[in-house]
């Protein structure tokens, strides 16, 4: 059996008294890309937020590197190496591109590793040359695609072992989507484990090593991408027939 980076066991998460995901059990092997597809309101974002710690009202288990992180605060989870790229980018809209990137390394900031952080910033600019060109621009004025790259760059500044991506293709032109998915593949090949959530099932299945289908807050289907691509139900509902 392959080494697991993260797994959830019977995870339930709540908004007030409303349960948004029910008994979700998933496995994310180390160094792989796992995709979760599902329609609006299926509970995809809720699942990612429950893993990253933004949602605290939950039961069941989140196990990361053999450690139970279910009840940990977001701060601690980030320090353990999980970074989330939230849905809709969620940039610091009034700060510059460079400040957004810099803040991505906030947990590691202290006087001693200034040069390390500068190296990371340079590394991120290497990945996204467009961001270097725009470094002094206020991030709220970037195009949708550039914003998504910035959101990924910010999360990558923490050099996470695992990155959680929430609908990176949302509201972005197809050509740019391809570019962003290339970045995701590159991140993965450089050793980062990826948990990807998407409504764009085709793109998500193409880059995944394994995938789950979420419906009404439950996992209804799982398998290798090519199995899911051949599944008549997936074809009809998520791939448009």
């Amino acid at each position: 059996m392959m080494a697991l980076m993260l797994r959830t066991e019977g995870l339930n998460a709540f908004y007030g008294n409303i349960r948004a995901i029910t008994d979700v059990t998933i496995r994310v092997p180390k160094g792989k890309v796992v995709s979760i597809i599902g329609a609006n309101g299926a509970g995809k974002s809720t699942l990612l937020k429950s893993i990253s710690g933004l949602i605290q009202r939950k039961n069941g288990h989140v196990i990361y590197k053999d450690r139970d992180i279910t009840n940990m605060s977001v701060n601690r989870i980030v320090k353990l190496g999980i970074s989330q790229v939230p849905e809709g980018r969620q940039l610091f809209a009034h700060l510059t591109v460079e400040d957004n990137i810099r803040l991505g390394a906030y947990s590691y900031y202290n006087r001693r590793n200034r040069s390390v952080i500068q190296d990371r910033i340079d590394g991120v600019y290497g990945m996204f040359p467009i961001l270097e060109k725009r470094c002094k621009q206020v991030s709220g004025t970037l195009s949708g695609g550039e914003q998504q790259m910035l959101a990924i760059a910010r999360a990558f500044m923490a050099r996470p072992d695992m990155i959680l991506l929430d609908e990176p293709s949302m509201g972005i032109a197809p050509l740019v989507v391809r570019e962003i998915f290339n970045v995701i593949v590159n991140l993965n090949q450089s050793g980062t484990t990826v948990l990807l959530v998407e409504q764009n099932a085709k793109a998500a299945l193409k880059v995944a090593h394994y995938a789950y289908v979420l419906e009404g807050g439950r996992v209804v289907l799982e398998g290798l991408p090519k199995e899911l691509l051949d599944n008549p139900k997936v074809k009809e509902v998520y791939l448009g027939g």
């Binding site: 710690g53 701060n75 970074s83 969620q90 610091f92 009034h94 803040l103 991505g104 390394a105 999360a155």
Partner: peptide, 15 residues
């Protein structure tokens, strides 16, 4: 300033 812009995103970078 980041907290003011987006508190959840600030949490996600460890603030």
């Amino acid at each position: 300033k980041a907290c003011a812009d987006n508190a959840d995103a600030a949490r996600l970078v460890g603030i």
